[in-house]
């Protein structure tokens, strides 16, 4: 195997493994800073959705990909974050710098509550429990006067000091910072003791417990961390859309997030990012495609619309059947192939 050999644990643990990684990251950062100047408002708005999805997907991947705990209720934690910031800002007049972390902690708290039964539940039972939790959260948002039912509620704009985030472009830089920060934190969690314990639990919980890892502590921590991410993503969605309705956070959102991490690659940070970008991009791609098709085949657009419902399902199924490691796996294989070419290994 070609490439860099690590001679110390420190080298193995490094955040940026080679000089090239640093160079590429620098180029990426520069591209992110410059690109809004060349894109239309519509395109920037798509990037904004992607950036928020990255945060949510990173969180879910910590839970599912790293710790191996199934959750079909991620959308509910986004809802909790979104409604916490909306209520805290609207009813209590708290500033954004307080409501944002508050959303994260609120979601984390409830996530840990859901995590407690998870100590007893495994696999499919956990899937069912989180599914039921999602429906119950939806039911509460619908029926509580405070959350104003299905017509939803207005959310105050983001105000930090005297700077208020208004245009899509401002939002882009604003959200991109959070996405970068979230990625950095996820990467650090993954390469620390916590991340290694998560992986041990995923691979064999009984063995992990035998090695002295406290299952209770780390499972609950995984739920808490994942929900914290979801809460932050939810709060950002709320402030970005300026209006929230419970219908935006239903089961289909949870499934979209699962599709992101499966398509991207379970248990990798890179996978969460790639998956979030692709899954968020697909509906917009379909919109572009239907626009073209509408002109020449008007009857087709109705069918494409139906197809839109099934496409996430299809992606999940195909990815699991043919590429369980997702895009990150493909990337890794391509890299090895490239490095060792023309030899097989």
């Amino acid at each position: 195997m070609g490439g860099k050999f690590k001679t110390s644990y420190k080298g193995d643990m490094a955040l940026f493994q080679t000089l090239w990684v640093k160079v590429w990251l620098g180029i990426l950062a520069a591209a992110i800073v410059v690109c809004p100047q060349f894109l239309s408002t519509y395109q920037i708005s798509i990037l904004n959705e992607m950036a928020i999805a990255i945060i949510g997907a990173l969180g879910l991947n910590l839970l599912i990909g790293y710790t191996g705990q199934i959750s079909l209720g991620h959308g509910a934690f986004l809802a909790i974050g979104a409604y916490t910031t909306a209520l805290a800002a609207g009813e209590l007049n708290l500033p954004f710098i307080v409501t944002l972390p508050l959303s994260g902690f609120m979601a984390a708290l409830l996530g840990m509550v859901v995590g407690v039964p998870a100590l007893r539940l495994k696999g499919l039972y956990l899937a069912l429990g989180t599914l039921a939790f999602g429906f119950i959260v939806d039911y509460i948002l619908f029926h509580w006067d405070l959350t104003q039912g299905d017509m939803g509620m207005a959310v105050n704009p983001v105000q930090i000091g005297s700077w208020s985030v208004q245009t899509e472009k401002e939002f882009f830089y604003f959200i991109a910072c959070f996405a970068a920060l979230a990625t950095l934190c996820a990467k650090n969690i993954a390469r620390s003791k916590i991340g290694r314990n998560f992986i041990a639990i995923r691979d064999r919980d009984i063995a992990a417990e035998a090695m002295g890892i406290s299952l209770a502590k780390y499972k609950i921590m995984a739920f808490g961390l994942s929900s914290f991410y979801a809460g932050i993503a939810g709060a950002l969605v709320a402030h970005y859309q300026k209006w929230i309705v419970p219908g935006s956070f239903d089961l289909s959102l949870s499934i979209a997030y699962i599709a992101m991490i499966i398509l991207g690659g379970l248990g990798t940070v890179l996978g969460s990012i790639l998956g979030a970008i692709l899954i968020t991009g697909i509906p917009h791609g379909i919109i572009y495609a239907t626009d073209v098709a509408k002109e020449s085949y008007p009857a087709l657009s109705g069918l494409i619309v139906d197809f839109k419902l099934g496409i996430f399902g299809l992606i999940v199924v195909l990815a699991l059947l043919f590429e369980p490691q997702g895009l990150a796996g493909i990337y890794r294989r391509a890299k090895v192939y490239w490095k060792t070419w023309p030899f097989k290994y």
Binding site: L15, A29, I32, V33, P36, Y173, A180
Partner: peptide, 19 residues
């Protein structure tokens, strides 16, 4: 370095003039 990167991003976003 990461902090620096974040700070850079924030800084540039401050400079960006609305369209």
């Amino acid at each position: 370095r990461a902090l620096f990167l974040t700070a850079l991003l924030v800084g540039v976003s401050m400079l960006a003039v609305p369209g």
